[in-house]
């Protein structure tokens, strides 16, 4: 089979639409995962067991089941309960919920990493609890979280092809449909691979840089 540039130009507009959906799903999914993850991370720290325990169960449940199953639930089963989601919405919510469970752990570890002494010193200089979060705890907790968060965003990006299973026309789905029509897989699949590489490699390089930059520092 020979590489056919004409075919490449022909399918490029279709694939470009897929690229946009892939990027949209990743970005929206990341934002949702960060917000939801923060919510569950804080809920898990609640002094009330009635709030924290369900959150622990929820996180374990989400991490213990495949993303694909969760996507099927959102897209094929929720409509039976009267909740109808567009394919992309179901995909974004699925990615967001799934990754929120991991990101929640990242937040938790980042917050726990700030020593107890920082809370005590804040109390001793009479900061309120919100002031302590904002000026003392989060500024120390967030930077070390950034590499781990970025890592999950890259992972999420590479898992977007799963959304094809719920009929989202992201890049993989777009490529498959042009391939199915033309019986040529070489060009579409190569382009998909190249696209993922082109995005992933800079991300991974940036990650390494972030990891060095935010190496743990002296807490005292």
């Amino acid at each position: 089979m020979e590489w056919d540039w004409d075919f490449v130009w022909e399918i490029l507009p279709t694939l470009a639409k897929g690229v946009i959906i892939t990027i949209q799903a990743t970005l929206l999914g990341s934002v949702l995962a960060m917000v939801l993850g923060l919510f569950t991370a804080l809920a898990r720290r609640s002094p009330s067991k009635w709030i924290s325990a369900p959150m622990f169960v929820f996180n374990d449940f989400i991490r213990g089941t495949p993303l694909l199953v969760q996507l099927y639930f959102l897209f094929f089963i929720l409509p039976d309960l009267g909740i109808l989601l567009s394919p992309l919405a179901a995909g974004v919510i699925g990615l967001g919920i799934h990754y929120s469970a991991y990101i929640s752990e990242v937040y938790g570890a980042g917050i726990d990493n700030v020593s107890k002494g920082q809370w005590e010193a804040s109390k001793a200089v009479n900061l309120t609890v919100p002031q302590t979060w904002r000026h003392v705890i989060l500024p120390q907790a967030i930077p070390p979280m950034i590499p781990a968060l970025a890592n999950y965003f890259v992972a999420m990006f590479k898992e977007t092809p799963l959304l094809a299973a719920i009929t989202v026309i992201e890049l993989m789905n777009a490529a498959r449909s042009v391939a199915n029509e033309s019986y040529r897989y070489l060009e579409p699949m190569t382009l998909v691979g190249v696209f993922f590489l082109l995005v992933s490699i800079p991300c991974v390089l940036m990650l390494r840089h972030l990891e060095k930059r935010f190496a743990p520092n002296d807490q005292r």
Binding site: A124, L127, Q140
Partner: peptide, 26 residues
Amino acid sequence: RAKIGMVFQLFNLFPHKTVLENVTLA
């Protein structure tokens, strides 16, 4: 608490703030 201050064995300075900011923050 406004009436009381404390100095700790392990300092517990705010590591992300400068020396000056450590003092001015509160």
